[in-house]
Amino acid sequence: MLIETKHFGKVEVAEADLISFVEGIPGFPNLHRYVLLGDNDENNPFLWLQAVDMPETSFVVIQPKLFLPNYQPRLNNEILEILEIEDLNQVLHYSITVVPEDVLQIRTNLQAPIVINTRNNKAKQVILNQPEYKLRYYIFQELKGGTGDACANQKAK
């Protein structure tokens, strides 16, 4: 299907690649279908989570484990049921990222990752109860100052 996107014009996407957010995400409750788009630059670890039914809604996302290998959200049984997760190895986490005008202040939301069950492409923005994962994780500052471990950085402050 052909969809209109915020940054890449019209893009052809396969129905099978659509990601379904049953509840929408906080702030955007009426948008349920998204797709992940890259810019074909393999050096760029960021992707765009583009709303299928609203061209102007698109979020920058990244997999936290790319810079925090130990990132491990705890998903409770309700989340597992809603997303029909049977195997945690089939789950991907992305964090929604704010790119301000001063790009060095880029920050990403580790407290409320997008959790995708890759088996059925059901997804949800899950609010974690893990204080070590910050709502505003300033990527460049944290990585420069720390060991790359979110817990260690949290304790250091």
């Binding site: 995400i25 702030g27 698109s58 979020f59 929604i96 990222t97 790119v99 409320a112 709502l135």
Partner: peptide
């Protein structure tokens, strides 16, 4: 989280 999502949607 809602506010942060709204901020994130402004990225260019």
């Amino acid at each position: 989280i809602k506010k942060e999502n709204q901020q994130a949607s402004l990225a260019n």
